[in-house]
Amino acid sequence: MANDVALTVKALKTYIYTNNRCNRALDGVSFEIRQGKTLCIVGESGCGKSVTAASIMQLLPTLSRIEEGEITYHGPDGPVRIDQLPRDGAKMRAIRGKEIAMIFQDPMTALNPVYSIGFQIKEMLKYHTGLGRSDRHSKAIDLLRSMGIPLPKKRVNEYPHLYSGGMRQRAMIAIGMSCNPRILIADEPTTALDVTIQAQIFELMDTLKRDHGTAIMLITHDMGVVAELADDVAVMYMGNIVEAGPVGKVLRNPVHPYTRALLDSIPVLGRGKDQEIKAIPGQTPDPYNRPKGCQFADRCAYRIGACDQMPDEMQVAPDHRVTCWRYEEFAADAAE
């Protein structure tokens, strides 16, 4: 394994149990996050993106369990099997926040409304660093300033409700970044924001990656965001990664029928009115009543008899893999 890998997820299965029924939310997911790179996980709602993030952070809902697979954090003191740590044990608490930070779509899930933003940053610093009281205060101001929050000396004492949506999101990133984590997991951090504010957040994430070598896992449903920010991409559908590889390969030469259909279904700015967009027929299957074989089969135009069985992950190239029985035909077609 290359030593720039910050986190490895191998054959991860996370199931959620509700009303005595089992939802195989993640059904064998594998990927790596690399230091100084951005991995984008893309897919439609319900495909398992947030459960993937929650599995890594050990923040899963109560009635869910990692059934199989490995999550390995390659920390400064050697590899740590996160999946084997107790959820709320000291070790996991030390990793969560300090080594691996997470930001959410709704900043209010991470911000506490009754404490000032500055207090919340300083708590993180107190818990995870050896900084003294006044150093923590000035570090909090520095962090807000570096996140582009205007008047940081005043804002540091303000409560979350006085911040605008974009500022809250940046404050949450400031808290996330306060301990220089080696990995940042961002779950749709800009979905609720305007594109102009999104651009500010992306600028910030690019800086983190460049200047601090942070490994970023960015969850999105927007192929545009993937094209803009990703080094690597993993396309998910109903609990599986159906295609993964470097962004250039996956977006320029997509192999999996779902990746192709997804790219064909969105209008692209600058292509005008003559572009043809194709809807994907039907809808995603009931998660409690999943098809036995390929999860995309009901909506796939290329389905054959073999698709009633679950396809294996196949390598199209050493760094490009796809989960489809007919990948060889599609790969030949994509290469043209």
Partner: peptide, 22 residues
């Protein structure tokens, strides 16, 4: 506004103009 829109086309990447503030 247009420059801030992430475009799903690697060949059409434009420089985003980052507007300051809200």
């Amino acid at each position: 506004l247009l420059s801030a829109i992430p475009v799903a086309d690697l060949d059409k990447k434009s420089r985003r103009i980052v507007l300051q503030g809200d």
